[in-house]
Computed example of a mutant assay.
Amino acid sequence: MRGFAIESEIRHSCHVHARLLDAFIALTQAELNRHGPGFIEESLSELLEALHNERKAFGAIGGVIPASLVLVENAA
């Protein structure tokens, strides 16, 4: 029974981390949209790539699928 409780706690933690990453990704994307070509755009694009990779890892651990991926997959 204790193993199941730990698994539940891990899944819940992954959901929280994923939700926070989704919010930070959206915030970063909004900021990126305000900047033209240059260093800031390049820097934020790199940050977004890292955040998306991190987000995928939490999804794989916790079974959490980013909303943006669900929308893209359902559109097909």
Score class of each variant (00 low, 15 high):
Glu46Met: 08
Ala75Val: 05
Arg55Phe: 01
Phe39Ala: 13
Val70His: 13
Leu20Arg: 10
His15Thr: 04
Ala50Val: 09
Ile6His: 10
Gly3Ile: 10
Val70Leu: 13
Leu69His: 12
Ala30Leu: 13
Leu51Asp: 01
His35Glu: 15
Ile40Phe: 03
Glu73Trp: 07
Ala76Gly: 07
Arg19Thr: 08
Phe58Val: 01
Ala26Tyr: 07
Ile65Cys: 05
Ala23Val: 06
Leu69Ala: 11
His12Ile: 03
Val70Gln: 09
His17Thr: 06
Phe4Thr: 15
Leu51Cys: 02
Lys56Thr: 14
Ala75Arg: 11
Glu49Asp: 14
Phe58Asp: 00
Ile25Arg: 00
Ala60Asn: 12
Ala23Lys: 10
Asn53Trp: 07
Lys56Pro: 05
Val16Gln: 11
Ala67Ser: 07
Val70Phe: 07
Ala76Val: 06
Glu54Val: 03
Asn53Cys: 04
Ile61Cys: 04
Ala50Met: 08
His15Tyr: 05
Ser68Leu: 09
Arg11Pro: 00
Ser13Pro: 02
Glu42Gln: 14
Thr28Asn: 03
Ala75Gln: 13
Gly3Glu: 14
Arg11Val: 08
Ser43Tyr: 04
Ile6Pro: 00
Glu7Ile: 10
Leu32Tyr: 05
Arg55Leu: 02
Asn53Lys: 07
Ser13Phe: 06
Arg55Asp: 01
Ile65Lys: 10
Arg34Asn: 12
Gly59Asn: 03
Ser8Tyr: 12
Asn33Thr: 15
Glu41Ile: 03
Met1Thr: 15
Asp22Ala: 05
Val72Arg: 15
Ile40Pro: 04
Ala26Asn: 08
Val64Met: 02
Ala30His: 11
Thr28Gly: 01
Lys56Asp: 14
His52Asp: 04
His52Pro: 00
Leu71Gly: 05
Glu41Ala: 10
Glu46Ser: 10
Leu47Ser: 10
Gln29Pro: 00
Glu31Cys: 13
Leu44Gly: 00
Gly36Phe: 09
Leu69Glu: 15
Leu51Glu: 01
Glu42His: 13
Ser43Asp: 06
Glu9Lys: 11
His17Pro: 02
Ala67Trp: 05
Ser43Arg: 10
Glu9Gln: 12
Ile6Arg: 07
Ile61Pro: 00
Asn74Leu: 07
Ala76Thr: 06
Ile10Met: 07
Ala30Asp: 15
Ala67Thr: 11
Ser68Trp: 04
Ala18Gly: 08
Ile10Pro: 01
Leu27His: 13
Val70Cys: 05
Asn53Phe: 05
Gly36Val: 09
Leu69Cys: 09
Ile10Gln: 03
Gly3Met: 07
Arg2Cys: 09
Ala26Ile: 02
His35Met: 14
Ser45Lys: 06
His17Asp: 06
Met1Tyr: 13
Pro66Glu: 02
Ala30Cys: 04
Ile10Cys: 03
Glu73Phe: 06
Gly3Ser: 14
Ala26Ser: 11
Leu21Gly: 00
Ala57Trp: 08
Ser13Trp: 07
His52Gly: 00
Ser8Leu: 15
Ala30Asn: 14
Gly38Val: 04
His12Trp: 04
Ile6Trp: 07
Pro37Met: 12
Ala30Arg: 09
Leu21Thr: 01
Ala57Asp: 07
Ser8Trp: 13
Ala30Trp: 09
Ala23Tyr: 06
Glu42Thr: 11
Leu48Cys: 02
Ala30Tyr: 08
Phe39Met: 11
Phe4Asn: 12
Ser43Leu: 05
Val70Gly: 08
Ala26Arg: 08
Leu71Tyr: 14
